[in-house]
Amino acid sequence: MVRANRVVEISKTLSEILVCPLSKQPLRVCEKSNSLISDAIGVSFPIVDGIPCLVPKDGKIIEAEVSRDGDSANTKRRYHQDGTGGS
């Protein structure tokens, strides 16, 4: 319940104007980890108590998404998840 409350706290105004501080690309709200994710550079910024922390030093590099084998492995896995690609 508490978790559900925390997720919706980021205001509409903020979600409209915030971008990634490093790449200036749009951010995506990740409700599961309660953070803002910059897909362009693969960094997540935490939202603490409804306040997004967008100082570059607060950002964490998302490791799980980046596959060591490069793009091909990455896309293959995505196919699996979607269930659209072959095995």
Partner: peptide, 20 residues
Amino acid sequence: IETSFMVGDEEYLPIQASSV
């Protein structure tokens, strides 16, 4: 006044261009 709060660095302004 509707206020919103964020933590950010002036040297890395996380604000969309042409928005304020």
